[in-house]
């Protein structure tokens, strides 16, 4: 081994060992646990698929899984679709010396406490909340307006797994992860050679066709990154369903918490956590595949 390789391995060993001991080992453990059996007081190392089959057949848990994946997808779609025009505007229509300022403006809300932001959306969208009080002041109905359903979610018991407090969760999470979607798309757009657009116009395409045939395909890597960056934390989110959803629309993390710390059923919680990771992996594979298909020629 060369000196350089030895030095590199020596340097990388502290963070690597840390990741092995405190990330790789625990993740392997949790995978094992998800296949073990929950005994009365301790976990029995008997291999079983029961934790998974139960998660997928129990109507309550199944509903929870579908809700989690559905909410995460809706949040991802809303966030990325809302973010794209902003990233495009900053990259293509803001003067270069002002771009930093715009990015700065967009990242500031992200640096304020996540808990506080979620709490704020609760008071905005909740029953007797800011949104309703504004509507009241403007002379709308005295009855609680069906404002994004948060109200309904507070007043009535949920009828089905999809209920109107879900949109409130989606709005809150879309707000929370907006900068995460804008930044990668912006970076991808910035990398586009501006003369490509001119070439397309020169070859006869109008602005819309140029956007469709040149700009958008080249921005795909940024969009894929944005999708993954938003989807990953969203599917494992705890706070928003608990605070904004009013405890009536729990998602995976909320149930994992209950399994771990209230029911003391570690294998069940482990299986659920693994299912969320599986969802992340599947989405990641789909989008990476899309990315590769879209850009057939390697970068």
């Amino acid at each position: 081994m060369s000196d350089e390789a030895r030095r590199g391995l020596f340097l990388v060993s502290p963070p690597f060992l840390y990741a092995i001991l405190l990330l790789a080992v625990p993740v392997v453990t949790i995978i094992l646990y998800s296949f073990w059996t929950d005994g009365y007081l301790e976990v029995v190392p008997d291999l079983t698929l029961e934790n998974y089959t139960e998660s997928l057949t129990d109507p309550l848990i199944r509903q929870l899984l579908v809700r989690s994946v559905g909410v995460a997808m809706a949040v991802t779609a809303a966030t990325v679709l809302l973010a794209f025009p902003i990233a495009y505007y900053i990259s293509f229509h803001v003067r270069p010396e002002r771009k930093s300022l715009w990015l700065f403006l967009i990242t500031i809300p992200f640096w304020t406490s996540y808990l506080i932001r979620v709490a704020l959306w609760k008071v905005i969208l909740g029953y007797n909340g800011v949104a309703n009080s504004v509507l009241d002041l403007l002379g709308f109905s005295q009855e609680p307006v069906l404002f994004f359903g948060a109200v309904v979610g507070q007043v009535f018991e949920p009828v089905t797994w999809f209920n109107l407090s879900i949109p409130a969760i989606v709005i809150t999470l879309s707000h929370a992860y907006a900068p995460f979607a804008i930044l990668p798309i912006f970076v991808a757009l910035e990398k586009i050679d501006r003369s490509l657009g001119e070439a397309s116009r020169d070859l006869g395409d109008g602005p819309l066709m140029t956007f469709w045939r040149v700009t958008l395909p080249l921005a795909v890597p940024g969009v894929v990154a944005a999708v993954l960056i938003v989807f990953i934390p969203t599917i494992g989110d705890y706070v928003t369903p608990a605070v904004v959803g009013g405890d009536k629309n729990p998602m995976i993390a909320n149930f994992v918490y209950i399994s771990f710390l209230k029911l003391d059923n570690y294998p069940q919680g482990a299986a659920l956590a693994m299912l969320s990771m599986l969802a992340v992996t599947l989405i990641a594979l789909v989008f990476l595949w899309l990315n590769r298909r879209w850009l057939r020629v390697g970068r």
């Binding site: 993740v27 993954l228 990953i232 995976i252 993390a253 919680g269 956590a273």
Partner: peptide, 11 residues
């Protein structure tokens, strides 16, 4: 790229 809930539960 790992949901934090995975880091939390596995540890």
């Amino acid at each position: 790229v790992l949901p934090e809930v995975i880091v939390a539960t596995s540890l």
